[in-house]
Design a binder for these strands. Structure first.
Lengths: 203, 203, 203, 203
DNA sequence: CATGAATGAGACTTCATTCAT
DNA sequence: TATGAATGAAGTCTCATTCAT
């Protein structure tokens, strides 16, 4: 029994999570069997249970990995000078570039959050993390005078957040929805009617 | 037992659907067992299968009943003179008055739509029905001059629809979300920045 | 509650038996449901159970009806002057003229006889009835000098009976078997090698 | 548990088939439950389904195993110098030495063949295999002059086959039938009236 | 006599999880 | 550590039979 390096251990964990994610995305959480995941990840049941103590732990694991990815991504928002560009970029990233299967997985995860508190906790934590970061940056921008809000800034931030939710949900849910085109128009509308970056103003 | 009247048959169907809905809302579709539903509806398994030929048929049944309710509700939108009021009313109705459990059920249904084409079809049909009706009424209002859009009317309609999705999704998903308060602010913002009913203008 | 005449009662019984037979022949005993039979016979479950107290009773009923038919048929054998003609006629009747479905039903019934003593009893009674009658007539013919047996008459009778079983079984079991053609040749062989009717001899 | 050798896997399969056969023979296919078979074979339901994917697959498995046994047995017929001895030996083997339960199982299998095409295919293949081999050997014997047929050889072969079917069917079906005694007499009759091996002739 | 809705035990099968090797 | 055969509880659905009307 040779001891695996932490690196190897983590690789294996991630491979399993990868396989589970593919399965859950295409068939849903409950219809996916542990055997499906084993096959997809190239791992035996015994080995799988060495890394995750139950099927539920796999969903929690996926959520936690997503949270880490998101937290890594937040740094990038902060770096971008233009906040609306950053928001638009994120929407394009998550709702246009990512495959639909990934978004269906999110619906699956939210359904699961209804009964698994661990999933709910992780999901909400991630959600609030992003929202609050976005809110803070925006309000600071308004305070700095870099952003001009055409109305109550708090309300506009909330509206932008809910709009993003809406885009996400519709894209995940409605195969006829043309996300790229809609986002394009939406941000024109936002910039002309709700909020604008000072630097975008043409003199 | 003699032949049941169609009325009685329908009552029994609806009672079962009621029970199933309660179970699905609280435990989710897959974790709910047929026995759970039988217990909840006060019906034997045999009787249940007399009215619904499978577990899947129950979800489809719930979707179809919802669609009928929605279609009945649409008539009321049309009757309301002020379209923004109507939209606001609907949002309040579905996202504030309805219990959260009902909205969680919707998440469940959308998850199920990912694998059951019948569910997907009914859900999308209902969804498009509402959206297209709302779009038609709005564009007509703009053409009539009763509504003043501050921008491309089509784009504004789409934005309102996506906003509604966002409110719905967030309410279903985030227990800390104060829907009533948000909707209130949102419609003030809409009226001042996106679209207004002529009759609302103060002279 | 008008009392039915015995005639009407019997008609209904027979109609049910008819329906059951069709079902059993095409789907087998166990895979056939009581509902199938009700549908086929145009009778409600309640009514069916008024005439037959269980599913098993239906098979027993079919067997008993067959026995009565056979017993009625035996008189005809006795009337025929030429015994080999009679036997050949019976084989042609049961193995060529009757539809295969009827013979498959017999396989079904024999399978059922393995576990239902009532079925077994009726089936064996019928079987022995025919065989013993045939044996008696043949031996009497040999004693009378009307039949010439080329060997031990008892043995030849047994052989003819087993041959008949074989034709029946093969026809019931092997869709490629051409019963008409085989029976034709078989009886030529019998007449030339095993037993002959004196009146058939060409002087 | 480590990987089982193919040998061990096959042993387990055969043990299950053995148990299933005992159950089917004594209670019939449909009345036997999977639990019955598990009990009889000393296996859990999960394990059983590892080796056979359905109840139907068990019958098919039994048929296929029988076919292999028969094919192994055919070599022996070919080795025996006297063909009638070989046929008689086979009849004694299958209709006298084998327990009746085994023959009842055959009735069950034929009944099942009426609805399961896989069963039908295997059964008919086995049947034709034996018959055609027997036919070929016989006709060759006649051509060689080792067998003397008292009539059309083809017809006599068919008759012998159907006679065998008859013996089988009667033994499976009629508990009063003395197969050993009958076969003894039958072959005397065959040798004196239908066909004889030259070497049997007394000079 | 007849109806047909209702019952509920029990059938087949699946699958998350374990554990001997 | 890893394997993969094995477990067995539990799920969905069927269907012979009953009984209120």
């Amino acid at each position: 029994m040779p001891k695996l390096t932490p690196q190897q251990q983590n690789d294996r964990r991630m491979a399993i999570l990868q396989g589970a994610e593919r399965c859950f995305a295409s068939k849903g959480f409950h219809p996916t069997t542990m055997q499906d995941i084993c096959r997809e990840a190239g791992v035996s049941p015994g080995a799988l249970y060495l890394y995750f103590k139950s099927k539920e732990a796999l969903i929690v694991g996926i959520c936690e990995r997503d949270r880490q990815e998101v937290m890594a991504g937040i740094a990038q928002i902060e770096a971008v000078p233009n906040l609306l560009d950053a928001l638009q970029g994120m929407l394009v990233h998550y709702c246009v570039n990512e495959p639909v299967s990934r978004m269906k997985l999110m619906v699956e995860i939210f359904a699961e959050a209804n009964r698994n508190p661990d999933v709910a906790a992780t999901v909400h934590e991630t959600d609030h993390l992003i929202n609050e970061r976005f809110r803070a940056l925006t309000l600071q921008g308004v305070a700095d005078g870099r952003l001009i809000a055409k109305g109550d800034p708090e309300l506009i931030v909330d509206t932008l957040i809910v709009l993003s939710d809406g885009v996400f949900w519709r894209r995940a849910t409605d195969p006829t929805f043309d996300a790229a085109h809609f986002i394009d128009g939406l941000f024109k509308l936002i910039r002309s009617n709700l909020m604008i970056q000072k630097s975008d103003l043409v003199p």
